[in-house]
Nucleic acid binder design. Structure first.
Lengths: 118, 118
DNA sequence: CAGGATCCTTGACGATACTG
DNA sequence: CAGTATCGTCAAGGATCCTG
């Protein structure tokens, strides 16, 4: 696995390159919500528990820069901004599905009560 | 996606839980090498370009703690330590395969020369 | 040969306040 | 409503040195 440069950043493996697109705590949850619906900033914020304003903004920006989502601004007051997934974003959905499924397996095997019955 | 606690750590999604097991720059490359062979510390070190001593040690320890690999020490001098994958580790291989494939797709679409012909 | 310990830099992330 | 800007904290990770 030789390394390579892209966008002024060094990557060691294809895995690292992939995780740079969809890795981290929030990118997959965001893409997951957008896979079938267009959502406004505030809707995403409400839908994703515990994500902070700063993280949501920065992650949305990164996803847009990488071409996985599209940002549409409506010139009205108060502002209205919609986020939608692109074909390139849709390409990540099957991968996310696998990772999520793997996560559920691990949770089950760990004997964790999930989702927790209150 | 409700959150849950495990091992004194808070997780927000199954995705995050999964990435805690195989995420980061090095865990998947390590598991990938071990999927069909038992390797010594020094062999892994040589096989994985650019990984530092500290990272390899810490990642191996984490993978062992999570039960994805086994560490076998031979009481000889100089020391000989072998690492092998467990059934739980093998469970991650298909997921890694998907992420890697996704990474290759992204690299190709980005027009990156990979692997680079020198 | 394998790996622990230490020091240091960097950047990820949260909290808060401000703006069109 | 959506987004910047700023500040502070903390942990990931690199470099180096030491040990059985």
């Amino acid at each position: 696995m030789p390394e390579f440069f892209h966008d002024n950043k060094l990557y060691y493996t294809p895995i690292e390159f992939a995780l740079n697109h969809i890795g981290g705590t929030w990118k997959m949850p965001i893409l997951w919500r957008l896979q079938k619906t267009i959502l406004r900033y505030g809707e995403l914020k409400k839908d994703i528990p515990h994500i902070t304003h700063k993280m949501l903004t920065s992650q949305l920006k990164e996803l847009e820069e990488k071409g996985l989502i599209t940002r549409t601004v409506y010139p009205v007051v108060p502002p209205k901004v919609e986020y939608s997934i692109t074909p390139k974003g849709l390409q990540a959905i099957p991968v996310i599905e696998h990772i999520m499924k793997y996560g559920y397996e691990l949770i089950k095997e760990a004997g964790i009560d999930y989702p927790p019955k209150k």
